[in-house]
């Protein structure tokens, strides 16, 4: 693959920059990583708006359950979710480390582990949601529950997308090896994954901890 991906930039034939990680080694890669950071700015704001809405509405429980009641029965569930997602962020970091310094088979292994952890997180969340719904606490019960399902569900949808995305990149790494393009793709998906982890820390604090306290 050598230098095929220096993008639309000016110095097409410039050799790979040395001394920087592979994913930053081409201008194209660096530009795309910047672009992704800019995307994350918008995603932060998206979550900020959802958090603001949740904070405004979380005491508006109508005839439904309160946050204390709802999450009080679910401490083990959300604690496990938190533990799993934080661990997956760590394993995702290990994948990036292996990409830069280590073996590609271990890289793939860490991606697979990250995906599995992500899947179990989603599994727990689906279980949590279905338990709430089976007790009659649905999205249309109260403003609080609308805001809860939307905020946490949006995060869950992000995580699900992340798992599929990671799968696609795992496939590409297996087929095409680690090159500036696949390295950049893996780096970006890991940025995304860490970002979701940070969002979850806020969800854990603002939604669950505040709820049970």
């Amino acid at each position: 693959m050598s230098i095929a991906h220096s993008g639309l930039q000016h110095h097409v034939d410039e050799p790979l920059q040395t001394g920087v990680p592979l994913e930053f080694s081409t201008e194209d890669g660096a530009t795309k990583i910047l672009g992704f950071w800019l995307f994350m700015v918008t995603d932060v704001l998206l979550f900020a708006c959802l958090f603001a809405t949740y904070v405004v509405l979380y005491k508006h429980i109508g005839a439904g359950a309160s946050a204390a009641k709802l999450f009080g029965d679910d401490v083990s569930g959300f604690t496990a979710e938190t533990f799993i997602l934080l661990t997956s962020s760590f394993t995702c970091g290990l994948a990036t480390y292996e990409m830069r310094h280590g073996s590609h088979s271990r890289l793939k292994l860490w991606i697979v582990i990250t995906m599995l952890l992500g899947l179990s997180f989603i599994g727990l969340e689906v279980y949590e949601f279905s338990t709430f719904v089976s007790h009659g606490d649905t999205m249309s019960t109260s403003a609080f529950l609308s805001a809860f399902f939307t905020l946490v569900g949006t995060h869950g949808a992000h995580v699900s997308l992340g798992i599929i995305w990671m799968g696609l990149i795992l496939y590409q790494i297996s087929r095409r090896g680690v090159n500036p393009v696949t390295a950049r793709k893996l780096f970006i998906v890991s940025l995304y994954w860490h970002f979701l982890d940070v969002v979850w820390v806020f969800i854990f604090t603002v939604v669950y901890l505040t709820g049970v306290m």
């Binding site: 509405l57 508006h60 429980i61 005839a63 999205m139 249309s140 109260s142 609308s146 399902f149």
Partner: peptide, 23 residues
């Protein structure tokens, strides 16, 4: 959120069940 109100019966901005149109 308004779309979710309209198609999934949520209560972000309705007048009842704690919705807050101001938001």
């Amino acid at each position: 959120l308004l779309l979710i109100d309209r198609i999934a019966g949520a209560h972000f901005f309705t007048m009842l069940a704690g919705g807050n149109p101001m938001q």
